[in-house]
Each structure stands twice: as structure tokens, then as C-alpha cells.
Design a protein around this nucleic acid. Structure first.
Lengths: 205, 205, 205, 205
DNA sequence: TGGTAATCGAGACGGTACGTCACGTCTTTCG
DNA sequence: CGAAAGACGTGACGTACCGTCTCGATTACCA
């Protein structure tokens, strides 16, 4: 899996000589982004200049590590999300509810960042790739595993299309978190359960 | 329903005196936005200056009508989407498939604009309101009607939560269009049918 | 002598039909300019829009009468200066002092306007012509007459160059008023007398 | 003597850190102004944008050094005038003629710039101060010295007011250059000599 | 231990777009 | 038809960021 690799100092050259990059600066930058987001800074006000100033860092120090704002925000989001929640292996239903209940809920700041990345992710294949590999796929894979187990135990239909079901489970919640797709859903705190139940009923063996 | 009202010339004053706003300019601006999008202009290159130049219009003429780029893009999107597709009144299944098959497909330009509005829609309550009223709600309402009919005819369970089901139907397709959420779904040209079938199975009476 | 003629309503057409021009508007505009100058408005802030607003007049009403801001300011200055002071016919010395003591002193607002016209007057031959005819020449002519009388009475040398002497008398005071050329001169309230005396001594018969 | 000091990067802070200001840019800007003036650009067409474009410089680079167009033009004028002409120490009359014969003649571009600065110089005390210190005073001082020498040698009256005489000598020529105060004077190529002679006659011992 | 080389914070650089303002003209309605 | 009102296309304003480029001053490694 291709990583959010740092830019090489000089492409193709040994990266051992000279002063090493300061990990303090690296983290100060990511922290600065999170701080600014937390303070409610709007996207256009979330400028590289503001980030550098907040981090107490020169702008070049940022550009030495990331190719642009989108890359930086993407890595911030990855850091924010962390590894996906793991299923407990109880029932398929309980595991799905467990996995879905954290979609966009763990850290409110992630909800703030995600919509800002949509323009870039929808346009740049590279941004899309990173988004997929670092954010989407790990979570889908966990969910696929739970569904495969359901098929194996005979709980779920053998011919179900796992990708479709995964999308059906995640999409409504994700969209809801991003743009409060339907505000009336806020009153339904068992929205997750309802979705799981409808889908499970629809794909029951 | 509150509209995408133009900015008043002087808030609270009668808007009858003086030269009236040119509808020619108004439309030239919206056309310019669509042209630029069609030519593949990226969002950051879709500047107010470029729009004004393309429309053969002064920048002030744009700002007289819209408060900023987001408002303008939003109205462009509203114009692009037009009124929602209407159901034919055949079976519930056929109607749902008909309604869903145009989600983000009718005009490829809309797919290009929508992700760019996510940052604004997710942040500004006003942008969100317009987005809801002009884009989302009309389409959800059509779909609600189809589902209510299904309940009335006894095809669907009487206690189903219509809002949840509508979200389950639309979200996967919309997200897919916006960020190609799962590219493997591109191979599934009957994705729409699968989703409808799973949901209908899940909420059958 | 060509005048600051108003622009004809329609060149070559009878100016009898339709609503006659409002003299009220004409004066309101000139008043507005003077008001704004008096309030200390800077040149760039002395915009046509501000003048029209202050006069309670449409911009077109101004442009119907003057070709541009410079023409308007020029006429304002002409109105401000009024007819030149007349000599009393006493001694040459007393008359010159009388004429010079009002250079740029009668109305403090004129001192404010004049420097603003320098760029235009120094560049546009037309503005220069009007400036000469309406402001400069009448005053120089009065002074020439006094000097000619001095020559006739034998007080002054018969071969003096009147134009040179007139310039020598007026220039120091005018420049002093416009840019306080030498602030130390402010302490010399008999500056005018000194200048007259030096010149008279220099050109005595 | 206070200078046309550049704007400090951060007022009160040490100006040693960071990339130093480019002297190349500084001079390119001044050159651009002179070029544009030379080409006959009118004042209103002498925009900051045009200057920046001609100098191959960003607008911010100009605003980092000067507070506005007037400050820039003023410094351009100072550069244009250079140090004042020095007297040769011959006779008082010859020295005065020498000094006066270059008033506004050395560089035709200076004549173009000066009237444009009148509005600013007559209004802003700061612009007036710089104008005095960098343009006016050095030239007046040279002339004062010549007059003082005349008094010392007994050529001139001991009680003459040097400031008044200096103004009488310079003003007619300066005003003539700026606004061709009296075009008939163009025919008098010995205007300078006439003025000097009248004044010397008027203040002779 | 002393050079070498890349990094650091800082901030200026050439650009581009922003949103505002004024220009002088044009197009309404009202008197 | 002149008036006011105010929208029109134009273009400059001064500001803010972009991503790059010097600066002098720090580090680490390697000789």
C-alpha cells in the first residue's frame, strides 16, 4: 500500500547527510492545523500562512514535507481517524452497529475536515487514491469481513454483493455527518440500528 | 419556501427606482459558470474574474447579485438540476429505480459542481438551507410519495421510517457520484436495482 | 474670450423644447463641491459620486453640464475667485500692494482647490486655456494697467518688460499660498510690501 | 535631516531576519516610473498596476516600500533632481543665473512629475516635509549662500531679507515651468537674466 | 574536532484573485 | 424631455495567499 510518503529531500539522492528534519516541526504543523480547525476557522481562512504562523514554523518547512494544502489536510485527517474500529465477533448485527456507530463521530474535527477535502478528492486522482487507501478501504475491509462471516454462518444470503451492502450501510451515515443530509435524522438516535435492520432483513438468507 | 432571493439594492428600500437589473447579464453569468465548468476548469481556477470575463460582465455586476462565489455556484447548481424527475406511477420498484437512475447523472456538470459546494454547505447554515430547499427536499419529497403509496397499497410495511429509507436509497448513489466512493461499483451497472431490491426486501410487508 | 460654455443639450438643435435645465441643480452641484472641499475632503475622495450624492442630483446631470471633474473644479474655482480686485488709482506702490494682498487669500477654499488642478492644467491645453482666461489673465491685466500707468507717469523705467515684472510680483505669493513654499515667510506679514519694494526699486526710472 | 525612510518591516522590530529587500526590485520600480512618464503616460494612467507590470514586480513589493503612489512619485522626483547645482564663485550675478537656469530644466521628466505632486504636497504635512527637505531646501540653501556672499562683499544691501529674495528669484521660473504660467515668457530666452537683474537692481547696496 | 550539508525561522519575491470603489455611460420611471 | 436613481462594463485600488527564493543561524553526520 502506497503511503503518504514524505517528499524526498533530493529525489534519488541519499537522505542521510545534513541536518535531519525536525519531528518537532512536523508535529507542530499537524497540531496547528487541528487547533485552527477546532477554533472554527473557515476553509479559506485555513491558509498555509496561518498554519505556519500558528505552528511557529517557516512556510518552506511545510512545503518541504507536503506538496500542498490538500496533502497536508489529508494527512491530518488520516492522523485524526486513526486505525478502524475492530469488530468484537459477537453477532453480525452487533458488529455492524458497533462499526457504524463511530462513522464520523469519534472526533468532531474529522467531520469538519472531510467536506473540505471533497473538492480535491473528487478531482485529483492522486488525492482520491490516498483518501481511499488511508481512510476508506481499511474501514470497508473490516466491514466486508463481518459480512463474509455472516455469509459463512448462513445468516446472510450467499449471493449478496458485499460491496453494495457495505456502501448501503456506510453512505447514509457518512453523508449525514458531512452535510446533515437530513436534519430530521438527528432525532433518530437509533438511525444506525434501523439501517442495519433494514439491510439485514433485505439480505437475510 | 424561501427563495434564492437576489440581494436587495438597498436593504429595506423600494427597489423600483433606477435602471433595473439586466436579466441578460444575470443569465450570461450563469452561462459563463457552466461553460467554464464544462471546459474542465478547476475550482480554484473558477475565479470570479474568469467568470466575469467570460460573461462579458463587470465583477461588480456579479457581486450586486450574489454575496460570493458559493452563492453563485449554488444557484448555478439549482439551475442545472432543474425540477426533480417525476414517478410514472407504475410499480413502487420501477418508480424508485427511475428516480434513482438520474441521481447525479442527468448533467455531468452538476457532478463537477457538487463536491465544490460541500465545504460551504457543511459550514454555512444559510448555504445548507438553500441546498436543502432547492436541491435535496424536492427530490426527497417525490421519493417519499412513492414510498407512501407503497405503504398505502400494502406493498411496504406500515411502520417503516420513510426518512431513513429515502436516505438509504439516495446516499450510496450520491456519494458514489461525488467521490466515486467505491470504483468497483462502476462495474455494477445494475447497482441501482440492487440497492432498491435490498431495501424493498428489507421493508416488505 | 471663450467662455466656460455649458455643453449644448443637443449640438445644433433648438434648446427650447422639453423640460428646461434646472438652475437649482446647477447651483446645488457647485455648492456641493464647495461643501465637500470645506469639510476637508481629499482630492481622491472628492468623487463625482460624492458630489452628486451631496447635491441630491443624478450623475448624468453633472455630465450634462461639464465634461469631467476637472472642468467642474475649474468652474468652481472661477466662481470662487470672482472678478479681480480693482486698483484705487493712488500710487503705483499702494495699488500693487492692494492687488497682491488678496492673492489666494480671499477665500481659503480656493487655496485648497488650486493645487488639485495643477496636474490637469499642466497637461491639458484646454484646461490650461480656461485657467488662463478665467483666472490668470484678468488679474494680470489689472496689474499690467497699474504698471503701464507707472511708466506713463515716469515713476517706472520706460523699457521694463511688463510681463516679467507681473510674474515676479505674483509668483512668489501664489506659490507660497499653494504649497507654503517657504514657511518662514509666514512670519513675514509684510512679505507683500517687501516684494513690491524690491521690484519697484529694481525697475525705478 | 529625516530621510525618505523605507517602511520598516515590522515597526519597532529588528529588520535583520528574513530575506533582505531586493535592491534590484527597488531600482526597477523607480526606473519603471521614469520610463512610463517618459512615454507620456498621464497621471491617472500611471497606475500602480502599470508600474508593477513594467518593473516586472508584484504590487506588494511596491507597497512594502512606499505607502502609496504619492510617496513613490516623491522619491522618484528626488532621485530625478539629484544634488543641486553648485555656484562657481564668480560674480553674484553669474552664479544666480547659473543656479536659476536649471530650475526645472535639467530633466524634462521632473517637470512632468512635479505638478502631479502638488495636490499631495499641499495637503499632507508629511509629503510637504519630504518635498521641502529633499527638493526645495538644498537648492534654496545654495542660493542663500550666494546672496550672503554678495552681502559680505558689499555688493548687496546688508539689510536684505534673504528668504524673500530667494523666493522672488525661484518662484517665477518654477511656476513658469510647471504650468507655463505665462506662455509669452517662452519667447523671452533671457527671462532668467531679466529677473536677476531686476532683483539685483532692487537690492543693490 | 572541524567541515559539510541540509534544515530551521523569517520574510521578501513575482503572481493571481479578492472584494470595493469610482469612472463615464445607459436605461428605467416619474414629473 | 429633463430629472433622480441606479445598473452597466471597465479598470485600479490595496490586501491576502500562493508557492518559491534567499538570508543568517542551527544541528547532525562524516572525515
Amino acid at each position: 500500500m502506497t503511503e503518504l510518503a514524505e517528499l524526498p529531500a533530493t529525489p534519488g539522492a541519499a537522505r542521510t547527510q545534513g541536518r535531519p528534519r525536525s519531528s518537532r516541526a512536523h508535529e507542530a504543523i499537524l497540531e496547528a492545523v487541528l487547533d485552527l480547525i477546532e477554533e472554527g476557522t473557515t476553509v479559506e481562512a485555513l491558509s498555509m500562512e496561518a498554519i505556519a504562523a500558528r505552528a511557529g514554523v517557516g512556510k518552506a518547512t511545510i512545503y518541504r514535507r507536503w506538496a500542498g494544502k490538500d496533502e497536508l489536510l489529508l494527512e491530518t485527517l488520516v492522523k485524526l481517524k486513526g486505525p478502524p474500529t475492530q469488530p468484537l465477533g459477537d453477532s453480525v448485527r452487533a458488529d455492524l452497529i458497533r462499526l457504524l456507530s463511530v462513522v464520523g463521530q469519534k472526533d468532531q474535527r474529522a467531520v469538519r475536515v472531510m467536506p473540505c477535502l471533497m473538492p480535491e478528492v473528487s478531482r485529483s486522482p492522486e488525492a482520491y487514491r490516498i483518501w481511499q487507501e488511508a481512510i476508506t478501504e481499511p474501514r470497508r475491509e473490516v466491514m466486508r469481513e463481518v459480512l463474509r462471516r455472516g455469509v459463512a454462518t448462513g445468516e446472510l444470503r450467499a449471493d449478496l454483493d458485499i460491496e453494495v451492502v457495505v456502501s448501503m450501510l456506510i453512505s447514509p451515515l457518512l453523508l449525514h455527518r458531512m452535510v446533515r443530509w437530513n436534519p430530521r435524522l438527528d432525532e433518530v438516535d437509533d438511525l444506525t440500528e434501523q439501517i442495519v435492520d433494514v439491510v439485514l432483513q433485505g439480505v437475510a438468507a
